[in-house]
Write a protein that binds this DNA or RNA. Structure first.
Lengths: 157, 157
DNA sequence: GTTCAATAGTTCTATATTAAACTAATATTT
DNA sequence: AAATATTAGTTTAATATAGAACTATTGAAC
């Protein structure tokens, strides 16, 4: 699925790498989302529960940073999870602006059941790559992520 | 940003590769989306216009396949673009179920202006990787994509 | 210590997204 | 040829998402 754009070799090479990166992540995430949907969770809901399971209770802003989502978005996702009794909001005593989001026993049981299956599906997805290919992919992606942080710092400055 | 999950080495390696793939694509797409938003287009709208520019008029189902989006979604995106006068729907004569989506002169002018800037931004994003790293990334991502197609065929069978 | 600035969350608006139910047109089967 | 199945697109419902305006709380500066 190469680009049909006519441009310099350098540009075309960048676009091709970009397109394949997007296609790969979109198609993998698409299949995983279908699995999660069958378990009754959206990708964001799963991500929130998984983060709370592995990192413990977090305030919403922290949760948003981990999930790379906006504050308003986190409010929505936590609302849905709270309505289903999977998490609860706790006003932290010190600074009453903060809301600590906790897993309920029900939420913990659910994510502990689903997470291993999800991890298995991911392992299955990645199994088309050899061990060294997986490591290579990881390192290349980390470089793209590092650029991210540099740019953010520049913007903040 | 390694996983905090305790599992087998093989599982953890898969999860790490997966997480970095997702982070990289999300952070790159996030920055590009902000640029597009400043130009007045969403990512999907841009994708649709770009596809029509480089592949010519397409029916909505074909457009959806290119964009990896569902039919209902394409209807929405084309609605928005049509409302702004950037595309127009044309009933193809033969089979009256098909709607051919065309760029209008206005839409063509817009995407021809924005696309080179967007391509430049992508080139800038990918410039943290060397030429050979970009090729390597592309090939690894293509493998993940190929798995996709195999699975689809199996499901169809 | 009162005003101003920063922070945490919520709400609102607009668009995206999927899945499922639905309509219209065409193709297939008997 | 009539019944059935398939296909293209629309509509609807539920959730996601970003961004902007807003509230409430806390911190800083004068």
């Amino acid at each position: 699925m190469p680009t049909h754009f006519k441009g310099s070799l350098k540009t075309i090479r960048s676009l091709n790498a970009f397109i394949n990166l997007m296609r790969a992540s979109e198609s993998v995430i698409g299949r995983l989302q279908k699995r999660l949907s069958a378990e009754g969770l959206t990708a964001s809901q799963f991500g929130a529960l998984e983060t709370l399971l592995h990192l413990g209770p977090l305030c919403q802003t922290e949760l948003g940073k981990k999930l790379l989502k906006t504050d308003g978005n986190v409010t929505m996702v936590v609302n849905h999870l709270e309505k289903r009794g999977l998490v609860k909001r706790v006003r932290a005593g010190e600074d009453r602006r903060f809301v600590s989001v906790h897993l309920t026993p029900k939420g913990r049981a659910l994510i502990q059941t689903i997470f291993p299956r999800h991890a298995g599906a991911i392992q299955e997805e990645m199994s088309v790559l050899s061990v060294s290919e997986q490591e290579k992919l990881r390192n290349l992606c980390r470089k793209l992520g590092r650029k991210n942080k540099m740019i953010k710092k520049e913007i903040i400055k």
